[in-house]
C-alpha cells in the first residue's frame, strides 16, 4: 500500500500528463469544445425535469437544482467506472511496449472525470442562485465528500479494470450494473419517497449515501448523516486497499494478456 503510494507520487507527472491528454483529446476538433461539459448534464437535467416534474408531477421544490446535485457526481462516478473498466485493454499499446505501473490507467480516468465534475459544479451554483437557494456552511464539507467518492470510485475501478483483462464480459456487465444503480440511487427522487418496505435497498446502497450527502450540503443546507458518511468513508478505504492488492496480484500478466 505504502509502496503503491510512493510509486504514484513518483509517477505524478505521468498521471498528470495522461489526465491532460484525456481532457484535451476529448473535445478537440468539436465546435463547442469544453462547453460540452456543461451542455451534457444540462440536457439530461432538462429532459428529466420535463418527464418527472411536468409529466409525472414529482413534488420536489426547485427540482432542477435537486436533480443537478445528484446527476453531476453520478456522471463522474459512472463515466469514470465505465472508462476505467476498459482502461487496461485500451492502453494495451503502452502496457506492452513501455514499463509503467498499470495502476495509473484506471487512476487517469477517475482523475480526468473528477476534473470534469469539479468544472461542472459552477452550473449547479448558477442554478442555486437562480432559484434562490442559500449556500450553507456545510458546503465546507464538499471536499471531504469528493475525496470519499474518489477513493470509492478508484477502488472499484481497480477491481473492474484488472478483471476485465481476462474476463471481457465485464465490459458489458458494468454498464448494466450502472444503469440499475442509477435508478436505485435517489437522484431522480428524494430518498424520503421510498416506501418503508424498500428502505433496505437504499440503506445497502453506498451510492445512495453518497448522493444524499451531496443533496444535504448543497440542496437542503444541512448536516449530512455522520454515521452514514463514516460508513461510506470506511467502505471506500477498504475497497481501495483491497483493490490495490487485487490489482497488484494480477498486473504482471497484463502485458501478455491484453
Amino acid at each position: 500500500m505504502l509502496e503503491c503510494l510512493s510509486q504514484a507520487y513518483r509517477h505524478r507527472a505521468l498521471v498528470q500528463v495522461l489526465i491532460l491528454r484525456e481532457l484535451k483529446a476529448r473535445y478537440r476538433g468539436t465546435a463547442l469544445g469544453f462547453l460540452w461539459s456543461f451542455v451534457n448534464p444540462l440536457i439530461l437535467m432538462m429532459i428529466y425535469v420535463l418527464v418527472f416534474s411536468v409529466y409525472l408531477r414529482v413534488d420536489v421544490p426547485h427540482y432542477p437544482v435537486f436533480l443537478l446535485c445528484g446527476i453531476l457526481p453520478w456522471a463522474w462516478f459512472s463515466s469514470a467506472l465505465n472508462e476505467s473498466t476498459h482502461s487496461i485493454i485500451s492502453n494495451a499499446g503502452l502496457i506492452k511496449k513501455v514499463y509503467l505501473p498499470s495502476e495509473i490507467f484506471p487512476l487517469v480516468y477517475v482523475g480526468s472525470h473528477a476534473v470534469h465534475y469539479l468544472l461542472s459544479v459552477p452550473i449547479l451554483f448558477f442554478f442555486m442562485a437562480f432559484f434562490g437557494i442559500p449556500l450553507s456552511w456545510w458546503l465546507l464539507t464538499f471536499p471531504i465528500i469528493v475525496f470519499i467518492q474518489f477513493m470509492f470510485t478508484y477502488g472499484l475501478a481497480l477491481f473492474a479494470s484488472s478483471l476485465a483483462v481476462q474476463f471481457r464480459d465485464l465490459l458489458h456487465i458494468v454498464p448494466n450494473i450502472l444503469m440499475i444503480a442509477f435508478f436505485l440511487t435517489p437522484i431522480l427522487y428524494p430518498a424520503s419517497t421510498v416506501p418503508a418496505t424498500y428502505l433496505p435497498l437504499l440503506e445497502l446502497n453506498p451510492l445512495a449515501q453518497l448522493v444524499m450527502s451531496y443533496q444535504d450540503i448543497l440542496f437542503y443546507g444541512r448536516m449530512p448523516s455522520p454515521g452514514g458518511l463514516t460508513m461510506l468513508a470506511a467502505l471506500a478505504c477498504v475497497l481501495l486497499v483491497l483493490g490495490l492488492a487485487f490489482f497488484g496480484a494480477r498486473k504482471d500478466v497484463f502485458a501478455e494478456e491484453v
Binding site: R21, K24, A25, R28, G29, G93, K97
Partner: peptide, 11 residues
C-alpha cells in the same frame, strides 16, 4: 520497442 508509444492522434 515501439516509436511514439502513447501518441494521441488528435493532439
Amino acid at each position: 520497442i515501439e516509436l511514439g508509444a502513447g501518441f494521441h492522434p488528435e493532439l
